[in-house]
């Protein structure tokens, strides 16, 4: 894991050195940019509160258990092991929740097992869809997201399907 320890410092260093080489007054400019970043994070807060509250309530209600049961026939069709269904359901909704389930799967079945690998591919190739939508549209002040959600959900379905297919094909 040495490579990914390098990325952040190297990227920072390159930007700063490039800035100096182009005679940019780097510190003043940095502060200007950071001030914008500060304003932006305040602008995101209302959307974040709205989203995290409704997602938190949704998770606590046990609704995901029902969704998992409903997803069972679908998962049987594509050959997804039932143990991975909760991860597939939770992944787009909650990043931290998905990681907790993922760790659990790795511990119970082993990271190099069939189930462990499917879970890994799923975890590695998808994002917390709802969070991304809320933060980006919230920050830009967009209320009507039009076709964003269906397209994102299509991408999430593709990940579930592909993770099973890829693990079957490649391992």
């Amino acid at each position: 894991m040495t490579l990914d320890n390098m990325i952040i410092p190297v990227v920072m260093c390159s930007i700063i050195l490039y800035g100096i080489s182009q005679k940019v007054d780097i510190f003043t400019v940095f502060l200007e940019g950071a001030k914008d970043g500060f304003k932006t994070s305040i602008a995101v807060l209302p959307a974040l509160v709205a989203l995290m509250t409704c997602v938190g309530m949704f998770k606590a209600s046990g609704a995901l258990d029902y969704v998992t049961v409903l997803a069972e026939p679908f998962s049987r069709v594509i050959g997804l092991p039932p143990e991975v269904v909760p991860l597939a359901v939770l992944r787009p909704v909650s990043g931290s929740g998905a990681i907790a389930i993922y760790k659990d799967i790795l511990e119970s079945f082993g990271p190099d097992s069939f189930i462990g690998r499917i879970a890994s591919v799923m975890e590695g190739s998808s994002e917390t869809t709802f969070y991304t939508i809320a933060v980006y549209f919230g920050a830009a002040g967009i209320a009507k997201t039009r076709h964003t959600l269906p397209a994102s959900v299509a991408a999430d379905f593709a990940v579930v399907f592909m993770s099973v297919l890829m693990v079957r094909m490649l391992f």
Binding site: G19, E32, A34, F38
Partner: peptide, 24 residues
């Protein structure tokens, strides 16, 4: 979460401004 985000938000916005001014 916003407070956690705020730090990296400021850091990366600042770095981006440098990269932008330097035409990178």
């Amino acid at each position: 979460l916003m407070i956690t985000l705020m730090g990296s938000m400021c850091l990366w916005s600042g770095l981006m401004k440098i990269a932008d001014t330097a035409r990178l």
